[in-house]
């Protein structure tokens, strides 16, 4: 047996086994961390009604401020209320089964759609839309991502702990870094404090806490 594998001493064999088990375990946990954990920490959600921004904007030709507008005191209207939808959707306007669902299930029954809100900030944060949109002329897409390109029903992922979300788009939309997705999808993360602070710094704006925190 001189030419074959060198015979290991007892201590060396034990070390080899321990090291082997360690590395196999490391690889298993790394893989789990890359694939399973993101799925565990994020809840996948879809909107109750398949609303398409691209259809309303490009095909129907409605401008953004028809539904998303400022009140006179400078506060932001946010997600449109049912009354704004009903202005047009009093009855069926098209052939789409989703619109049928919307009109029959919500409009005619006088129910509100519980839209999934993926841009909600914690209660210690106050954000002024008019300061950013009217004064600083920041485009909506800078923070909200390519909402106007949502041709497919918008799905989003909510972190089960922090409640911050990622919006999932089709491949046609640009992405702002987030792993663990299929290639035909891209995502846009919601606005976290780091992103706000980075933008303020790069524009030379104040990063005083009370500007955003309340």
């Amino acid at each position: 047996m001189e030419s074959g594998v060198k015979k290991l001493k007892k201590g060396e064999r034990e070390f080899a086994i321990t090291a082997g088990v360690f590395f196999v375990g490391l690889i298993i946990f790394l893989l789990a961390g890359w694939t399973v954990l993101p799925r565990l920490s994020y809840a996948e959600k879809v909107q109750p009604v398949e609303f398409r921004h691209a259809f309303h904007g490009e095909d129907v030709g409605i401008t953004c401020d028809t539904c998303h507008f400022f009140y006179k005191d400078g506060s932001w209207a946010g997600i449109p209320k049912m009354e704004i939808c009903v202005d047009c959707h009093v009855y069926l306007l098209g052939q789409s089964p989703e619109e049928k669902k919307f009109v029959h299930e919500y409009v005619l029954k006088n129910r509100h759609v519980k839209w999934g809100l993926y841009f909600r900030q914690p209660e210690c944060v106050s954000f002024s839309h008019s300061s950013h949109v009217r004064m600083a002329k920041v485009a909506c897409e800078t923070c909200h991502g390519p909402q106007g390109l949502s041709k497919k029903p918008t799905e989003y992922r909510t972190n089960r702990i922090t409640k911050y979300s990622f919006v999932v788009y089709g491949a046609e939309a640009p992405s702002n870094n987030y792993g663990g997705l299929k290639k035909e999808k891209s995502v846009w993360g919601t606005i976290r404090m780091d992103e706000c602070a980075d933008c303020h710094r790069s524009r030379g704006k104040s990063t005083a806490c009370f500007l955003c925190h309340k």
Binding site: F70, K72, D73, G74, S75, S126, S128, S130, S131, R134, M135, F210, L211, K214
Partner: peptide, 21 residues
């Protein structure tokens, strides 16, 4: 006390909406 800094934010909000800095 923060000198009601939320009121400052609100006032600024309105001023910005009117295009005032």
């Amino acid at each position: 006390c923060t000198f009601c800094s939320h009121r400052y934010s609100k006032a600024k909000n309105k001023a910005h909406n009117d295009g005032r800095g």
